[in-house]
């Protein structure tokens, strides 16, 4: 089992990254982690999800958004977060089920797409791909977050 806290630098645990340090085009990862049946169940509970919505031909799948607690791992491993980051936008596509009865090895990679200012606030946008142990994408995302100063 890999808990997100094991691989995601936590705010305050290491010096955080100021906006100026983020570099457009920077590569993120690869970083690998295991989504276990225990994580799948904990995520169902923590996100107030209904597991019955994710049963395929009698087999229990995870909510595909179980990836979300790991979402920032690639970017935060490269750029440890400062306190007060606020998520602004997320686009996410899912391609394959993550099953609830087995452990799924996931490898995440990404790229800093852009950094920009809007209405006096500073934002970073990055793209991530989360693939299984065969290299097949499980999910892709485009995420934008606000870095306070």
């Amino acid at each position: 089992m890999t808990r997100p806290s094991e691989i995601k630098p936590r705010e305050g645990s290491v010096p955080g990254t100021p906006y100026a340090t983020f570099a457009e085009g920077a590569q993120l990862g690869p970083v690998s982690f295991d989504i276990t049946p225990e994580i799948v169940q904990e995520y169902f509970t923590a996100s107030q999800a209904d597991p019955s919505l994710y049963v395929v031909d009698g087999r229990q799948a995870a909510a595909p958004n179980v990836i979300l607690p790991y979402m920032t791992v690639p970017v935060y491993q490269t750029y440890p977060p400062i306190q007060g980051i606020v998520m602004a936008e997320l686009e996410m596509n899912w391609h394959r089920p993550i099953w609830a009865d087995e452990t799924t090895r996931v490898t995440a990679t990404g790229t800093i797409v852009s950094k920009f200012e809007k209405r006096g606030r500073k934002y970073v946008q990055w793209r991530g791909v989360f693939a299984d142990d065969k290299g097949q994408p499980l999910a892709e995302l485009l995420n934008t977050f606000h870095v306070p100063e």
């Binding site: 919505l53 994710y54 799948a61 602004a88 686009e91 996410m92 596509n93 899912w94 391609h95």
Partner: peptide, 18 residues
């Protein structure tokens, strides 16, 4: 998931702006 059933797991697209 409620709307699209099992297709949600292989073709789902979610866009959220907070």
């Amino acid at each position: 998931a409620k709307r699209y059933g099992k297709d949600w797991l292989t073709r789902g697209k979610l866009h959220t702006k907070w």
